[in-house]
Amino acid sequence: MTVKIQVYSDYVCPFCFLAEGPLEQAVQGKDVEVEWMPFELRPSPTEPLDPWNDPPKLRMFEQSIAPYAQRLGIDMKLPRLSPHPYTHLAFEGYQYAKEHGKGNEYNHRLFRAFFQEEQNIGDPDVLAKLAGEIGLDAAEYREALETGKYKEAHQQALNHAYREAGITAVPTFFIGNKVLRGIANRETLEQVIAEELAGQAGKAAEGLSCSVDGECD
């Protein structure tokens, strides 16, 4: 039995980026399908986050998020982009990438571009370049953004996340019939996956996450 895993995330959520590694480790060699699901923490016209000009959020990154990344052995930066970009264009691009069989690869590239390379993933030129780097047609991708070809598909994905799945913080994992809210370590993910593969019941768990009110804890 294949276990389906859906991960709701936003590209500017630090814990979503940090959730990638443990998940990749946990699913190795297992009969699972992973799908990353769009969720915008701060959709336009909501004021975007600006951690470099928000002392409490800057302290949170320095005192909590950065040490957590270090413990995981992950190179991570707080991007010097003030404010952080909106992610709707990046997610419209995700719909293009998914349609062309590179959805998960696209997500990985965008997380790395933002949190390791400090690239502006709200810029269409940057997004097209990144799409090209993973083997997508950069010109066709850029045209899709310019024409809004995937705008409706992205909005439908957001409506699903907000209204049907009831997501209020990310990352949130739907692993078969179980839900994990917040970042989870490899061992926890492996346990839940094993329970699902065996058809066993289990408890939901919660970890560090970023919520729609701009808090990451």
Score class of each variant (00 low, 15 high):
residue 85 P to V: 09
residue 86 Y to V: 06
residue 26 A to G: 02
residue 38 P to Q: 07
residue 44 S to Y: 15
residue 127 L to I: 10
residue 15 F to A: 04
residue 128 A to C: 06
residue 54 D to R: 10
residue 62 E to G: 00
residue 129 K to R: 14
residue 69 A to L: 07
residue 180 L to P: 01
residue 145 L to A: 06
residue 15 F to M: 09
residue 138 A to W: 02
residue 159 N to F: 02
residue 134 I to H: 07
residue 141 Y to K: 05
residue 195 E to L: 11
residue 79 P to K: 04
residue 216 C to H: 07
residue 136 L to C: 09
residue 143 E to F: 07
residue 120 N to I: 09
residue 217 D to R: 08
residue 21 G to L: 12
residue 137 D to M: 08
residue 129 K to N: 11
residue 9 S to V: 11
residue 171 P to Q: 12
residue 3 V to H: 10
residue 69 A to S: 06
residue 105 E to C: 00
residue 139 A to W: 03
residue 129 K to C: 05
residue 117 E to R: 13
residue 178 K to L: 13
residue 147 T to Q: 14
residue 86 Y to C: 04
residue 179 V to R: 15
residue 173 F to R: 05
residue 176 G to T: 11
residue 97 A to D: 11
residue 67 P to N: 03
residue 173 F to V: 02
residue 104 N to T: 09
residue 148 G to C: 13
residue 198 A to Y: 06
residue 21 G to K: 13
residue 145 L to F: 11
residue 130 L to D: 12
residue 86 Y to T: 05
residue 153 A to Q: 15
residue 147 T to G: 09
residue 137 D to T: 10
residue 206 E to L: 04
residue 143 E to A: 15
residue 87 T to S: 12
residue 94 Y to F: 15
residue 97 A to V: 10
residue 96 Y to V: 11
residue 103 G to Y: 03
residue 137 D to Y: 06
residue 216 C to I: 10
residue 65 I to T: 05
residue 129 K to D: 14
residue 69 A to C: 02
residue 42 R to H: 15
residue 206 E to H: 05
residue 74 I to G: 00
residue 121 I to L: 06
residue 65 I to E: 04
residue 203 K to R: 12
residue 115 F to A: 06
residue 119 Q to N: 11
residue 169 A to K: 12
residue 42 R to C: 06
residue 62 E to A: 11
residue 100 H to T: 02
residue 205 A to G: 09
residue 2 T to L: 12
residue 165 A to L: 04
residue 160 H to E: 12
residue 195 E to P: 00
residue 173 F to T: 02
residue 144 A to I: 10
residue 103 G to C: 09
residue 165 A to Y: 05
residue 78 L to Y: 01
residue 194 A to T: 12
residue 188 T to V: 09
residue 53 N to H: 15
residue 47 E to L: 14
residue 6 Q to C: 02
residue 183 I to K: 01
residue 161 A to D: 03
residue 209 S to Y: 06
residue 102 K to R: 13
residue 72 L to Y: 01
residue 134 I to C: 08
residue 104 N to L: 03
residue 91 F to C: 04
residue 81 L to N: 04
residue 153 A to R: 14
residue 18 L to R: 01
residue 211 S to P: 00
residue 214 G to L: 12
residue 87 T to L: 03
residue 36 W to T: 13
residue 125 D to V: 04
residue 67 P to M: 06
residue 3 V to C: 10
residue 211 S to Y: 07
residue 116 Q to Y: 08
residue 35 E to N: 08
residue 184 A to P: 01
residue 77 K to W: 01
residue 37 M to E: 14
residue 145 L to E: 11
residue 190 E to G: 03
residue 114 F to K: 05
residue 1 M to S: 14
residue 121 I to Y: 02
